[in-house]
């Protein structure tokens, strides 16, 4: 190996890190240098081998949990206070459930539920999302074809969730699965954004449409909720809020 370019500019060229003039200079050199042409091909082969390798390893769930516990310890709000808060929240939620049932049992009293609230708690959504990331849990029907995923739900649910692939917009459909959230059967559409997965939980609703709600954030996961044309949607992921919102808007159309 003798050509100096193989140890320098060739790599900048391969990595898209040369500026326009150096890139053009290298391309001119490449036309006449057989060695560089061959090395470039080899380097491209090595790159594709590495990128297809599956060598990238994700953090185990146990690590996420440990980090969360450590962060709790290092955050100013005393943990005890937060537990108390969640305990009160649980009590309040129970009262709300009882009250809601009471409203329905006596219809003449009318309904005053918060019409925009998501049907699930943040904890339910995030637990379902984390559960889906465990090996073998992500999809029941792994397919990037919406015409495979949509019919798959047929006969398994009493509604037909809208299934669309947005690969051209950077959100490729990975598949679908059935899940049970808060005691209700829901359809889940799974999308991939770069290396991240997004779960979109879908179920029917009789409530009127709502806009896409401002995001919630917990344990490093984002979620969004909205209702559109008789369907209720909750999207959960560890992608950025902007990305998640983009997918929500695509689904909302």
């Amino acid at each position: 190996m003798s050509c100096d370019y193989t140890r320098t500019a060739l790599h900048g060229y391969l990595d898209g890190e040369l500026d326009a003039s150096r890139s053009a200079e290298f391309e001119r050199h490449l036309e006449g240098c057989r060695e560089c042409a061959k090395v470039l091909q080899t380097e491209e082969s090595l790159r594709s081998v590495l990128q297809r390798s599956g060598l990238c390893e994700s953090a185990p769930i146990s690590l996420r949990k440990k980090i969360r516990a450590e962060l709790d310890k290092a955050t100013a709000t005393p943990v005890a206070q937060r537990i108390a808060f969640w305990r009160w929240a649980a009590v309040a939620a129970s009262i709300l459930v009882v009250a809601t049932i009471a409203w329905y049992a006596w219809p003449q009293l009318g309904t005053t539920r918060n019409p925009e609230a998501a049907p699930f708690t943040a904890a339910e959504l995030i637990d379902a999302h984390i559960r889906s990331l465990q090996p073998g849990h992500l999809t029941d029907v792994p397919s990037t074809d919406q015409h495979t995923v949509k019919p798959w739900f047929g006969g398994k649910l009493d509604f037909a969730p809208p299934v669309k692939d947005f690969a051209d917009d950077g959100f490729s459909l990975v598949g679908g699965r059935l899940d049970v959230l808060g005691g209700r059967s829901v359809a889940v559409l799974v999308y991939a954004r770069r290396k991240h997965f997004i779960n979109v939980f879908v179920l029917p609703t009789k409530e009127p449409d709502t806009p896409i709600h401002p995001p919630g954030l917990r344990q490093g996961y984002q979620w969004l909720h909205w209702r559109h044309q008789g369907m209720e949607y909750c999207a959960v992921s560890d992608v950025s809020v902007a990305d998640l919102h983009e997918l929500a808007q695509l689904l909302y159309q």
């Binding site: 980090i67 709000t77 490093g220």
Partner: peptide, 28 residues
């Protein structure tokens, strides 16, 4: 040693999503 709830939320939003990348670098 101690951050408040707001900083914690910002940390979860900006830093925590890169946990996989962090683990992958350490692993190799």
């Amino acid at each position: 040693d101690v951050l408040d709830v707001e900083e914690r939320a910002r940390f979860e939003q900006l830093v925590l999503p890169h946990l996989d990348a962090a683990f992958n670098l350490a692993r190799w």
